[in-house]
Each structure stands twice: as C-alpha cells, then as structure tokens.
C-alpha cells in the first residue's frame, strides 16, 4: 500500500503539542481561495516546471517507509510530541494508511491530524480510533456562503458532533479572511458554534502569502485579500474569551 505525500517536514513546532513530524498528504475536498498549500489540493501527483526543469508535486511512499521516516525523530517526541497528518486534508488518506496508524499507536506515538473535516463518515470513524488531537478547521458555517469554498456544512457539523460525542480532543482553527470567514454573520455563527461545543482551545490565524510561488508553478494566481487589522483580531479573540474558551493567536 502506498500513500501520496508532497512533503514530510521534521522538527515542526507549530502543528500540535511538542516536537512533531508533519506529513503532508495530497488531496482535499475543499477549494479555499486562500489555501497556502495549493499543491496539495489535487489527489494526484502533478508535474510542474521550475527553471526549465521538470519537477513533481507529490510522490508515492510505502507505509513502511513512511513509518520509518516518522520514527526517525521518536526520541524527540517525548510524551506529547509525535506525528501530524496534514495536507491538503490530513484525513483524506486515512483508509489507506490504517495499518500505519495501528503501528504508530503500538509504538506510543502521539497522532494529530489537521483536517477540514469535510470527509466521509468512514474516515472519521477510523480517525477516532487512533487520533489523539484533531486540529479542525472552522471556516464558513452558512451553506450559501460555504459554496464558495466547496464545503458541505451539514457533513462538517455531523462530523464535528461525532468527534465530541466520542470525547475526542478537538482544537478549532479559524483562518481570518475578511471576505470569507471574517464577516459579521459568519462571526456570529462561529461564536454560536463554539458556545455549543466549548472546545478546550481555539487558534486563530491570518492568512499568509508564502504559497504564492507555488500558485504560479501551477499556472494559478493567488487572489488578493483585504488585510485584517490587529484590532479586529483582538476584538474577535476577546469575544471568544468571553465564552470562557481558551484562544490563541498563531504566528506562522
């Protein structure tokens, strides 16, 4: 069995607790225009050109090799570090990699996943068995607006409910994009949603343009977005704090 990954990044300090190795899978069901990893949206290996050289986004890797790569930094993980599956959508290849997940659990490796949670129920069921921390995107909650990013709000909500029903450890991550997530009506919905679930932690972050070069290589253009001010971020964070929910701002 082989997975398709675009990158395995070691010594990651921002993708969950402790020191982590982050595996970037290819494939995502959503189409967020601000996506910072546009090369990971497509499920397949993609060719691109740089300085006249033919290169590829993504490569196949066997589960054994992937496991070996993850275990290389085992000694640094200690109690809370481990592996983070990201992407694209970190859950997207979970069916394929279930044997790997099993082995990692046996090896006591902490597993995090970064996901849009807009995935089939089947994948969520597998994840619940193995994942220690879910880093779940919280974006647009009104289906009409959500169409813009190709998401399915009811599937999302159903999956979130499932995680909480199963007492999973969930951290919500909110990208603040003025035209999309940071609108008055969506903020209201988000707050309501948070109040309902009372997660242990919420992380908010601004979008960044580090992926711009990658858009170019894919013959796409990264759209411009309105800037969001520090005051706006603070006021949003304060509203979350008022709900007695921990919130932190993530620098990238």
């Amino acid at each position: 069995m082989k997975a398709i990954v675009s990158n395995i990044q070691r010594f990651c300090l921002h993708d969950g607790p402790g020191i982590r190795t982050t595996v970037f899978f290819k494939g995502c069901n959503l189409r967020c225009p601000w996506c910072s990893n546009p090369e990971n949206i497509d499920f397949n290996i993609q060719e691109y050109e740089e300085d006249g050289e033919l290169l590829h986004y993504g490569y196949e890797i066997s589960l054994e090799e992937l496991e070996k790569e993850i275990l290389k930094d085992k000694l640094y993980y200690e109690e809370n570090g481990g592996v983070t599956f990201s992407g694209g959508d970190g859950l997207i290849q979970f069916k394929k990699i279930e044997p790997l997940l099993k082995n990692l659990k046996k090896d006591n490796i902490n597993i995090c996943v970064e996901t849009s949670l807009v995935v089939s129920e089947e994948l969520v069921d597998i994840a619940i068995k193995y994942v220690d921390t879910f880093l779940v995107d919280l974006k647009i909650l009104n289906q009409n607006d959500a169409n813009k990013i190709n998401t399915d709000v009811s599937l999302y909500k159903q999956n979130v409910k499932k995680l909480f029903d199963n007492h999973c450890n969930v951290i919500f991550r909110i990208p603040l994009v003025p035209e999309y997530t940071y609108t008055d009506s969506n903020i209201e919905e988000i707050l309501k949603f948070l109040q309902e679930y009372k997660p242990k932690l919420v992380q908010v972050f601004k979008l960044h343009r580090l992926g711009e070069k990658k858009y170019k290589t894919l013959n796409k253009k990264m759209p411009e977005f309105k800037n969001i001010t520090d005051e706006e971020i603070n006021s949003f964070m304060n509203k979350i704090k008022e709900l007695k929910i921990n919130v932190e701002y993530c620098k990238i």
């Binding site: 010594f11 300090l13 402790g18 020191i19 000694l75 640094y76 200690e78 570090g81 620098k251």
Partner: peptide, 17 residues
Amino acid sequence: NDNFDKFVDFLMASIKV
C-alpha cells in the same frame, strides 16, 4: 524566542540521541 520551551525539549532529547 517563539519556541523556547520546545527548543529546550529538543536539546534535552538531543543529549539522549
């Protein structure tokens, strides 16, 4: 600066490595 504690974790782990 941004990762002081985790960097200490890293150094302590490196000794064992």
